[in-house]
Structure formats: structure tokens, C-alpha cells
Amino acid sequence: MPEGHSVHRIARQFRQNFVGHRVAVSSPQGRFAEGASVLDGRTVTDAKAVGKQMFLEFDDGLWLRVHLGLYGAWDFAGDIHSDPTIAASNGRMGQTNQRGTVVDGDDEADPILDLDGENSLHSIGAPRRARVRMSEQSSPLAELDERFPPEPVGQVRVRLLTDTTVADLRGPTACEVIDSAGVQAVIDRLGPDPLLDPSAEAGERFVSRAHRKGSPIGLLLMDQQIVSGIGNVYRAELLFRARLDPHRTGKTVPEETLRELWADWTRLLAIGVETGQMMTMDDLSPADYRLAMANRADRHWVYKREGLPCRVCGTNILLEEMGARKLYWCPNCQR
């Protein structure tokens, strides 16, 4: 499932390439034909992300709400402009030391592209083998066909088209047209998102909500009503970085530890948005940093490392199911 950093990057893509433009909205698949007809011909006025939810505003106070879920993704084609704040830092920002200080990888200015396309500007969301991704050996979607717009490929729920750019949505869990009150109602049900609200008050809302619960902290971090945006990868990595047993109940985790979790989530989310990758490793050499940015197997402490020795203590990483999702953790470091 795409995690919070991906959804924030999608919102940035729309702000950079669609806001201020009148769009043709269609549903090639047909399942969103009624909603598409309501939005067709309107101008995009805003785009924002809250956790795993994205909201695209159109004139007259209408919004398109999208939750990608497990399988959803946006594919972009045409004249794609990257967010200058991402372009300026991509390839440099991407690791923190144990105190949370951002460390530059080296002096390389160009982005280090992930082999699986995780930080592609042309396809953001759940991975699919059939989707073309950006890499040194492949071309952007729009370059595969001289015609613009390209023909829809696969089950496209929604297509948004300007004179120069197209965005295709496939496989979302939720896709609906709502008004401003509906947007606020969704946001009110969600836990805090540190990119939407980095205030101390937002952090304290997370602390108080988590500390009241008798559920395992490994479940609470995935509860979008407790905190927004954390998915399976970030859950495992945040708990390892905090040296927290995932089975420990929220009410038994010290409040100061919960505050440190919030601060670490704030840092990792910002790194994920800027680099496009869930980089969670610390204190890497420039060479190891480049390897980690190019290959997800080299940039996580415990995620998908079951049976392999812990990078810190050498104990084999465990895999179990928690909350119907795979949980990776070190039984020695996280005691």
C-alpha cells in the first residue's frame, strides 16, 4: 500500500502540473462516469494530502477524494514538471543519524533513481510490473508514443487531462466527488499528519491517543485515526529505530517515547517526500548511501529482512502477522 510520503508527492505533482488549469475529466473504465461528468471542464484550484488520502479541489467548491488503498496508483504523462523543492534536494537528502540530524549523502546533485522506480515522477503508488517507470534505461510514459494524449492503458478509473499533461488513476479503494464539508469530515476522522500540521499540539494529539489504548503499539501506528500516513514499511522501521517491542501496549509506552516516535515520523516522512523513497537507514557512507537510494534492500533496518541477521546485533529478524499485515522486527533489539 502506498504510504503517506507517496500521497504527499502525488499532491505536489498536481499542484505543480494541474492547479490553475482547466481539465477534461473522464472515466475510461466507466466506473466513475457520473463523477467524471460533474468535474469535466472545471479548473483545478488546489491539491493536498492528509495521510493516505488525497484531495483535489475544483472550482465551485467541489473536491475529488482519492484513497489509493493496496493497489491504487497514479500514472502521469506529457510535459511533467517536478516540484523545485524536490528537485533541489533529491539525491542528497535521505539519511539521518540516530539523533535525527539530516546527513547529506555526497555532493551529487542529480537524483539517484531507484531500480524499481519508487521515486519516479511518472508513476506513483502501488508497484505494478506492467507500469513503465523512470530509470536510466527507460523512457517517460509520454515518450513511448508520439501522440498526446496517449491511449489509456488498463483499467483507468479516472483520467485528468490538460493541454500538456495527463494523469491516470487505477485501482483506488476510494474515489468520489465531495464538497468542502465532506473533506473536513474525512480529515476530522484522521489522526494528525506532521506535514499538514507540524505543531507541538498535533504531536500531543498522537501521544494522548496512543497512550490511552490497550492495543499493541504495532497496531496503533497503522491506525489512521491515531496517526496519519504510516504503513507497513514505516511501522516496522519506526519501531526498530525506537527499539520498541511491537507487542507493547500503547498505554505502557512512556509518553516521552511516543513523542520521540512522532518526531522520528516527522523526519522520515519529510525525507520520503523529498527523495521519493522510504529511506530509514542511518549514518551511511556516501557509497553505501548511493547503494541504498538505488536499491530498497539496502535502505531498511528490518523491513523484508526476515531470517537475515539484524544489522545491529546479529539476531535473525522475525516475521509475523499483525493487523493482517506482515510485521518485521528484531526480538533482541526490540525488547
Rank of each mutant, 00 (worst) to 15 (best):
L291Q: 00
R131H: 04
S215I: 10
H67L: 13
E3Y: 06
C313E: 03
S26Y: 00
Q98N: 06
P216D: 04
L318K: 07
K48G: 13
L220R: 01
R157Q: 13
M322Q: 12
L190E: 08
N295W: 13
R299P: 09
T162S: 15
N90Y: 10
V166A: 15
G171F: 15
L258Y: 08
G182L: 12
M134T: 05
G171W: 14
V132L: 08
W301Y: 12
L190M: 15
V166Y: 12
R290V: 12
G51F: 09
G91L: 05
G117E: 04
I317R: 00
A109H: 07
Q334A: 09
I217C: 01
F55E: 00
K326I: 02
E143L: 14
P111G: 06
P331V: 04
R311E: 10
P286S: 11
Q95L: 04
M1K: 06
H247L: 10
L56C: 07
E146R: 14
E256I: 05
G307W: 03
G314K: 05
K48D: 11
V302W: 10
I124H: 00
S215C: 11
L319N: 00
E3N: 09
V102G: 13
G91W: 02
A174H: 10
A33D: 05
M281R: 13
M279N: 10
R311L: 15
D245L: 03
A210R: 03
D46A: 15
T257D: 01
P149V: 14
L291Y: 02
R305W: 08
D60R: 01
L291V: 02
D83C: 10
F240K: 00
N295A: 14
I217V: 10
C330E: 06
S215R: 15
A174F: 08
Y234C: 08
H122F: 11
E201K: 01
A210T: 04
K48N: 12
P84I: 07
M1W: 09
